[in-house]
């Protein structure tokens, strides 16, 4: 399992997370990150981890649990 938290103050709306893990992340109308749902399978978790690694403003934290 992983737990995902996002810092909407840090987010700069690049949308990289939406490209990496579209089932997990979205952008609201102002372009800021939204977590749709935590990933249920390993490919989804891996995509979420990648989103965390490439987020330009380091606004995504993926905690393994």
């Amino acid at each position: 399992m992983v737990h995902i938290s996002v810092d909407t103050e840090r987010c700069v709306g690049a949308g990289q997370c939406v490209l990496s893990a579209p089932d997990v992340f979205d952008q609201d109308d102002s372009g800021i990150v939204l977590v749709l749902e935590e990933p249920a399978d390993e490919p989804g978790r891996e995509a979420a981890r990648q989103a965390g690694l490439i987020c330009p403003s380091q606004a995504i934290t993926v905690k393994e649990s």
Binding site: V12, G13, G15, V18, L19, Q27, D29, S30, G31, I32
Partner: peptide, 10 residues
């Protein structure tokens, strides 16, 4: 940045 990002979302 915040003024412009709504126009460039995915």
């Amino acid at each position: 940045r915040k003024t412009l990002i709504p126009e460039f979302t995915v």
